[in-house]
Design a protein around this nucleic acid. Structure first.
Length: 472
RNA sequence: GGCCCCAUCGUCUAACGGUUAGGACAGGUGGUUCUCAUCCACCAAAUCCGGGUUCGAUUCCCGGUGGGGUCACCA
């Protein structure tokens, strides 16, 4: 049996974090077993269709590197298929036509609620004779097709939760074909998963209670049962199901804010799954290798941005510098900066960035001298006169350095430290004003690193500038 | 409310029935240091409660409590 999984979102918005994890697990599982991962769009509710949602979903999946081998299939283009299968159920007596109006159904529900009964269709149309049904259709009455739930109970196995049993008395006679001729999710999902050869249905746990009616259909059709795996939810900090209001939930928002796809995948994969052991950082290939449904957790996991931040920063610090270079470019806007310089900036500043967006202000500091308060130039253990004197000294020393020294930040560092030592100077007295002069900030990388990025000319310019500021 | 699912540090999690209950993030302290970040070291922090089963339960069973999901011609 070849493994085949699917990600089947409805086109009602953007891919959100929970959806990403579902897609990721389906992807990982398929890859792990050398199987196929396909994309299907569940667009059977015309009223909920959102313009552009399909494109957005596909685009985000692509940016996240979750490539599918088949699809996208659109359920709205498979209507005849669903009708064929619904008719099959109808003629076998597993389904029946229902002419009840929405108003009556609403009324019925109210009554049942008032009497504290479970809200289910009362089967008024179940025993309509063939003639009655034909008459009503002839009279132009609209109808739906309902699944007839048999007596007894329904049991199924879940790869994550084990065996689950639900009494059939709890299951409603589900509408399979709506009055608009579209199938409901329940019919479409069963028919498509069978027709498309899906072997493993991996999706959110909100579907658990719907499985029994699906199982009843599988049995009625005589389809082979797939393996079910229901994932725990990704939660808000207050343990409710992850939603907007409590932070971003759209994957593209995170991408646009400068989170790396690799970090996002890594973080989300480990929300509810752990390969055992203390490791935290995994490439997508390593995740594929390690993935195992039996190691997926049963309980919901809170989406913790703090940990995602840590992981994203870790990726920024450790990925190949050339890869980082390309990732950062889109976040620089219209900034003019030579690639060579940008690369140096990244080498120096990557330990200070949490997201790719952080590099914009970090890089701007190098392309343009930032304004700052001259007071900042004064080292806490020194005074204005000393700051000025130390800067003058460094300027003189740097002026006489060969240009090639600036090719190597470590060499530059050792030369300047030599200068401090030989002159019997204090490091803080020299380095603090120098660093503030170069960065324009009290918090920055070391003066050697900054000088290395700026080059001799710009370094001297900023140092002289600082002296001028101090003396005016 | 009915039904279903779930339950280890604040958070993500590890632990064939036998561990000082481990790791990571966040938090705290200290080191490195001109500052910030990184890095390093250390500290604090959990088995929801009650019964069983067992020589021994985080682990198995039952009950309670708590949380979540679902009860549409939405997915």
């Amino acid at each position: 049996m070849t493994v085949k999984t699917r990600f089947a979102p409805s086109p009602t918005g953007y891919l959100h974090i929970g959806g990403l994890r579902t897609a990721l697990y389906n992807y990982l599982f398929a890859k792990k077993h050398s199987g196929t991962f396909l994309l299907r769009i569940e667009d059977t509710d015309q009223t909920r269709y959102v313009e552009g949602a399909v494109e957005s979903l596909i685009e985000t999946l692509k940016r996240m590197g979750l490539t599918y081998q088949e699809g996208p299939f659109l359920q709205s283009q498979r209507l005849e298929i669903y009708h064929k299968y619904a008719d099959q159920l109808l003629s076998a007596g597993h389904a029946y036509r229902c002419f009840c109006s929405k108003e009556r159904l609403e009324e019925l529900r109210k009554q049942q609620e008032a009497m504290k009964l479970s809200t289910k269709y009362d089967r008024r149309c179940l025993n309509l004779t063939k003639e009655e049904v034909e008459d009503k259709i002839k009279n132009g009455e609209s109808s739906v097709i309902r699944l007839r739930i048999p007596d007894g109970e329904t049991t199924f196995d879940d790869a994550i939760r084990g065996t689950i049993t639900i009494p059939n008395s709890e299951i409603d006679d589900q509408v399979l074909i709506k009055t608009d001729g579209f199938p409901t999710y329940h019919l479409a999902v069963v028919v498509d998963d069978h027709l498309m050869g899906i072997t493993h249905i991996i999706r959110g746990e909100e579907w658990i209670s719907a499985v029994p009616k699906h199982v009843i259909m599988y049995q009625a059709f005589g389809f082979e049962m797939p393996i079910f795996a229901h994932l725990p939810h990704v939660l808000n900090p207050d343990r409710s199901k992850l939603s907007k209001r409590q932070g971003d939930v759209a994957v593209e928002d995170y991408l646009n804010k400068g989170y790396l796809p690799e970090a996002l995948n890594n973080y989300v994969a480990l929300l509810g799954f752990n390969p055992s052991g203390d490791r935290e950082i995994y490439t997508i290939e390593e995740l594929v290798e390690a993935f195992d449904l039996s190691r997926v957790n049963k309980s919901g996991a809170i989406f913790d941005v703090a940990k995602l931040n840590w992981m994203n920063a870790y990726y920024i610090r450790n990925i190949d510098i050339n890869v980082l270079l390309e990732l950062v470019k889109p976040f620089l806007g219209d900034m003019v900066i030579k690639t060579e310089t940008l690369e140096k900036v990244l080498m120096v500043e990557r330990s200070r960035a949490t997201t790719l967006a952080d590099f914009a202000p970090l890089a701007r500091m190098y392309t343009t001298q930032q304004s700052y308060n001259p007071e900042a130039l004064i080292w806490k253990k020194a005074d204005k006169a000393d700051a000025s004197k130390q800067l003058e000294g460094v300027i003189t020393f740097i002026q006489n350095l060969e240009l090639s020294i600036f090719d190597d930040s470590a060499l530059l560092e050792s030369r300047i430290k030599e200068y401090i030592e030989k002159g019997n100077l204090q490091t803080g007295n020299v380095l603090w004003p120098m660093r503030v002069a170069l960065s324009g900030s009290e918090q920055s990388a070391s003066p050697f690193e900054i000088a290395w990025v700026l080059g001799k000319e710009e370094t001297l310019l900023r140092l002289r500038n600082a002296v001028e500021k101090l003396n005016t």
